[in-house]
Design a protein around this nucleic acid. Structure first.
Lengths: 234, 234
DNA sequence: AGATAACCTTGACTTAAGTCAAAAAATGAA
DNA sequence: TTCATTTTTTGACTTAAGTCAAGGTTATCT
């Protein structure tokens, strides 16, 4: 019992030290953090917070997957980002104390660590390296968002989809095939479209033998044409 | 002569101290900065940097107006942001040293101060308050970008335009009318559309007597309906 | 002022992508 | 496995917004 608990807390310690946010933080600070952080569990589909709620802190994903999204009055959803294990989200409201700028929900059963804002702010004050970590995180988010804006405004759905496949291929280093980590519906919401449209894009690209689909595995049959579609600018 | 130069440098000192970035910075540091910053002048339409160029520093607008934008291979432009006097841009590449994520050009004759990256990084290291300032700036940009993404994905052009008018009205505190600070073409690029479409939206809203247009002055004839269109959520 | 260029509007047309509805697959719980 | 729920696909249709081209307006420079 006691040893199991101990094991678990050592895991979390590693988790924190390996996260972007707390990288380089002294061990005793990490321990202190852990005693304050609250572990939370969400079931698939459960809401973590709604856009407009008071920004009381930020979250680190221990396991599972979370979407951060905006939703229109008509019910259309735009996923801003998906976060998996070791990643954290809602750093901006935790930093500035303003309401959450978007909503968050669990895409599957998810375990989170919640860090209250006050703890977080004190920690930043006492650890300049944390401020630098946070700056790096914000900088990365800003670059990502700039790309999303570009995609939504300057590219059509097949191009966005192709770019996403190339991104997955790049991440895993596999030029042959990629594994979709989201349902088609969620993927549609991430790419700024709706399931019907994405479905037709799948059909078109399959028919043109640029990709082929087995379950959630996408074979990249024609990287050349995929790159043209995805507009590999480099 | 000498007194004129002196006068000018005092102005710039004030400029720096009043900018978001350098707010609260000790006077001697500001002086040191000024001796390193390079003053630059750009004519209307002139490019300041291109997306992909090495991120060598950031810019503070002394006078004039600058657009930061992305452009598609087909030539469609999406303005990410417009910066006027007292505002600064390209902080992210200055911070992370990666290439500029977008291009920048002068919308009118513009005077800038350029701060080389190296100076900037040293300054951050020695002034924790500067890191906090930068965090605030990044946080604000992230919130803005999240809204832009929402607009592009979940709203149509009339809604975006109405939201923009309401934003101008809010900024100036004038519920009766607002002054457009961009040409229609630039406004179209800011709202993620093209001049023809924006022109038709103007026509439609004028015909429905929601707004009326005199030169660059837009009278807000029906705030109610404008708010419905602009989707004032809260 | 007059001329050149930049910008804006309008019309006719095309097209990407959304809507709605129904059927087909896939998933998961009993 | 079987049934029920959820997800995905497909078809027919609509619509917002882009394209192209022509005219009209406004601004700018000498």
């Amino acid at each position: 019992m006691a040893s199991k608990d101990n094991q678990k807390s050592i895991d979390l310690q590693e988790f924190l030290s390996n996260s972007q946010m707390f990288f380089g933080l002294p061990t005793d600070e990490v321990d202190a953090l852990l005693s304050i952080a609250q572990q939370q569990t969400y079931q698939k589909g459960e809401t973590i917070f709604w856009e407009g709620d008071a920004g009381t802190g930020f979250f680190l994903v221990i396991s599972g997957k979370v979407k951060v999204f905006k939703i229109s009055p008509e019910g259309k959803e735009q996923i801003l980002q998906v976060f998996g294990a070791h990643e954290h989200f809602a750093e901006v409201p935790a930093f500035d104390g303003q309401p959450f700028p978007a909503s968050a929900a669990a895409l599957e059963k998810t375990e989170l660590l919640f860090f209250p804002r006050t703890t977080f702010l004190e920690l930043i004050k006492n650890n300049p390296s944390l401020a630098v970590n946070l700056l790096k995180i914000f900088a990365r988010h800003l670059r990502r968002f700039a790309k999303v804006i570009e995609d939504l405004s300057l590219r059509e759905v097949p191009g966005r989809f192709a770019a996403y496949l190339l991104y997955l291929s790049d991440r895993t280093g596999n030029q042959e095939e990629v594994e979709l980590d989201l349902t088609k519906g969620q993927l549609a919401a991430l790419l700024g479209t709706i399931p019907e449209t994405l479905s037709r894009v799948f059909a078109k690209l399959s028919q043109e033998e640029i990709i082929s689909l087995n379950g959630s595995t996408v074979k990249l049959l024609n990287l050349q044409r995929l790159k043209v579609l995805g507009g590999t600018r480099e």
